[in-house]
Design a protein around this nucleic acid. Structure first.
Lengths: 164, 164
DNA sequence: GAAGATGTTACCGTTCACGTAAAGGGAAAT
DNA sequence: ATTTCCCTTTACGTGAACGGTAACATCTTC
């Protein structure tokens, strides 16, 4: 089995191939995302090797959701995640005892960003619901007509079987 | 006002620019869609001019929904609409008195296609719901912490205003 | 110490869904 | 009659999001 490079590797950390395997995202894409500023590995070793944590794995699925479910571009995702990172900053600001006013400001930013996201999600949800509705109605109409047609066919068949 | 070209134009029919205006889709896109086989104008005049009916206008918004809401590619949309067209075929088959068995077959195809679409929509709907849920929860957490922080800040302020 | 697996950067290629001229035609308005 | 629209085809360009490959480094294993 291939283990860590050079110095001993923190078993918590994952190499890019392992991350790719776990998430189904190619290594190429992971590097591309880093280039686009949407996903930074926790560590870049001297050899250039990227190392990721579980947090990044979660983030990857999150990114894919933002892409697939909401149609965000990578640029939009970068912005969204940037403000989301403000929340993490907030936590560390809390631990490091930053001024409450500063913390309150960061929190405000995070809330605003989240609210904006939620709005967009709600909009999308509503539209998908409406679409689903019309599709379901169409399904009903089709099935009803199928039943009618089946009845008609049945009637014919029996009248053929028992003429007069 | 610009009216019809050459022979008198059926007032029901629309020229490409008008369709673009009504739908917000560019003329380039309409021609491209035609090239990709997702949207055929009702008529191609001898001059090459494309003419569309209201049905196409509806179809255009439908196509945009399939793209934006469900992330379909144009190729997928073409397939989906092809089977959807089977329904129209069905209607004309009905009027032209095609065999009920044939009609039943077409109807079956349409039902299957619609069912498949509905499945995909439901899946998407569920995932968007889940996403919305987690976003809403995060919003709650953030707001709660904001209230706590505000209370803390308020306490400070008042203790500063009234020392001892 | 050679092979094999996994990583790196660098760069070019590709697909999708259009955008953007360029060059021209037919009908309508002035 | 000429200008003005709106349309046409043809063809090349573009941005987003990767894919693929070459050339090289590093580390483990045989």
């Amino acid at each position: 089995m291939t283990t860590a490079p050079g110095t001993i590797l923190d078993p918590q950390l994952l190499r890019i191939g392992e991350v790719a395997k776990r998430t189904g995202v190619t290594t190429r894409t992971l590097r591309y995302w880093e280039e686009q500023g949407v996903l930074r590995p926790v560590e870049h070793r001297s050899s250039g090797e990227r190392l990721y944590s579980d947090a990044e794995v979660d983030r990857i699925t999150h990114i894919r959701e933002l892409q697939d479910l909401l149609g965000f571009t990578l640029a939009e995702i970068r912005v969204a995640l940037d403000t989301e990172d403000a929340i993490d900053k907030l936590r560390s600001a809390y631990r490091s005892g930053a001024s409450p006013t500063r913390r309150r400001a960061l929190l405000g930013d995070a809330i605003a960003a989240n609210e904006q996201l939620l709005e967009r999600v709600d909009d999308r949800l509503e539209r998908v619901r409406a679409f689903r509705q019309s599709a379901a109605e169409k399904a009903d109409r089709l099935r009803r007509r199928a039943r009618e047609l089946d009845a008609e066919l049945e009637g014919r068949a029996s009248s053929t079987r028992t003429p007069r």
